[in-house]
Amino acid sequence: MALLLEQMLNGVQLGVMLFLLAAGLTLIFGIMGVINLAHGSLYMVGAYAAAFVAQATGSFLLAIPAGLAAAALVGMTIEFTVVRRLYARDHLDQVLATFGLILFFNQLVVLMFGRQPMFVQIPPAFAGAIDLGLFSYPVYRLCIIAVGLATAGALFWLIQRTRLGMLVRAGATHRDMVQALGVDVRLLYTVVFGLGALLAGLAGLMSGPLLSVQVGMGEQILILTFVVVVIGGLGSVSGAFAGALLVGIVDTSLRAFLPGLLRGIMTGSEADALAGGISAMGVYLLMAIVLLVRPKGLFPAHG
């Protein structure tokens, strides 16, 4: 029972990380119709900027604004120089251009920070594990869950309750009408792209003390993020939230419990190898099933 709860918590933690990335991706797609493969690069930029500042100053507090600012700035620069020219184009051009951006950013990071992975020390206040009664759990992971849920709340508030959010919602469903009403759509697009980048940067800087900050970290998580976005329904932030939690929990549960289940019916090492293979395919299978049942995802934005 304790193990089950602990694994669920792990699933939620992975889920909120995925949500931070997926929210930006889905907003950018919903409003601008752009597939941004380079979204993972923004996650990497946030992680590297934070790691660099943390190493230079020794302070994780300073690293937070650095990671956020770097990701948002780079994001807006990308929007301004490249993505802006792709709005009217088909998905193929977008895939081509943003694939090119991935190559560029990966190599740029190698040139600037070298090939060795970087590290961020966990802030001392969040180090260690806390006793939750049934089991103990790393404090830092609890913090990630808290920050992720708080960010999700803030984002919903932003979208449902503010003027910017109104434009975002309107832009997702009636793009042309928003333009016709004289809203500065270019500015709106840049702001939304920056916001998406900011969230990716947040995920990146939080992952620093957990994972290793290294070249290519963006692509590892990018594909999983796409799965989340598609399961949730393109353009839908609440869909991204549900999709992220679903993917996080399914992925973690498969990894945690499948070997045990299979070991009941076959020998140990065969079961482990098979379970490893199935759990790696699991989330993709989940996505295929969801799309087959609901081709527009769980919470389609366009009704």
Binding site: L3, E6, Q7, N10, Q13, L14, F135, R141, L210, L211, S212, M217, Q220, T252, R255, A256, P259, G268, S269, D272, A273, A275, G276, S279, A280
Partner: peptide, 21 residues
Amino acid sequence: GEVFTRLDQTDFAAEMAQIRN
């Protein structure tokens, strides 16, 4: 206990819980 982690996996929270158990 014998666990095969995923190629490219970087989050091992689930495995940590199994080890503890």
